[in-house]
Amino acid sequence: MDGIMNVLSYILSNKKALIYTTFIQEEYYKAASKLSAEGVEYRVATLSNTPSVGSPAHRYDYNVEFKFYVRKVDRHKAEEAIHR
């Protein structure tokens, strides 16, 4: 279901430039906070990955991928904000 919603969101959104991807929830919050502080509008697509039991991803809870998208004209500003 995530995939269908992500495709629809992508088609209907003006935020299509992928600027950041993470599997770590703490990094998700940091990136979102930095973008908001700079006034950059963004959208986040999430993809649930169900790893097999015993895999490194299962132990560290890296089962959700967060992808940040911004408008193409905001790409440079967004990348600078995230990597400060």
Rank of each mutant, 00 (worst) to 15 (best):
V70I: 10
Y42I: 05
T22M: 06
D61S: 10
I82H: 03
F23W: 11
K72A: 08
G3H: 08
E26A: 12
G3W: 05
E26L: 10
N14R: 14
Y20G: 00
E79S: 02
E79H: 04
Y62Q: 10
V44M: 08
R43P: 02
L47K: 14
A17M: 00
Y28A: 05
I19G: 04
V44K: 03
V73L: 10
K15M: 15
K30Q: 14
Y28W: 07
E26P: 01
A57T: 01
I82D: 02
V53L: 12
Q25M: 15
V53C: 10
S52L: 14
S48R: 14
G39A: 01
K72Q: 13
N6G: 02
L12E: 10
D74L: 09
N14C: 09
G3I: 10
R59W: 15
K77R: 14
I19N: 04
Y69T: 00
F23P: 00
V73D: 15
R71K: 15
Y60P: 00
T21I: 15
N49M: 15
I82R: 09
L18G: 03
I4S: 02
R75N: 06
L18K: 12
P56Q: 03
V53K: 11
K67G: 03
K67W: 00
S48N: 14
E65P: 02
V44A: 06
A81C: 07
R71Y: 07
A31M: 07
A32C: 04
A57E: 09
G3A: 12
V44C: 02
F68L: 05
S13R: 01
Q25N: 13
L35W: 05
K30E: 12
E41A: 14
V73I: 15
L35T: 02
L18Y: 05
V73P: 02
F23E: 15
I24S: 02
L35D: 05
A45S: 12
N6E: 06
S9M: 10
K67M: 13
K16L: 00
P56F: 06
R84L: 13
T50E: 13
A32P: 04
T22Y: 03
Y69A: 07
T46I: 15
S13H: 10
K15G: 00
S13D: 01
S52M: 12
P51Y: 05
K16S: 04
I4W: 07
K72V: 07
A57V: 01
E41F: 11
Y10C: 02
K16H: 08
L18M: 11
G54E: 07
K16E: 05
R71P: 00
E38V: 06
A81D: 04
V70Q: 09
L35G: 09
D2T: 02
P51S: 06
Y69C: 08
A45Y: 13
Y42Q: 01
F66G: 06
R75W: 11
T50D: 06
A78W: 05
N14E: 10
N63E: 11
V53Q: 15
A17G: 02
K34N: 13
Y28C: 13
D2F: 03
L12N: 12
F66P: 01
H58E: 15
Y60Q: 09
A57R: 12
V40L: 03
I24Y: 08
N14I: 04
V53N: 07
R43K: 12
E41L: 09
E65F: 10
H76W: 08
L12K: 08
L35H: 03
I82T: 03
K16R: 13
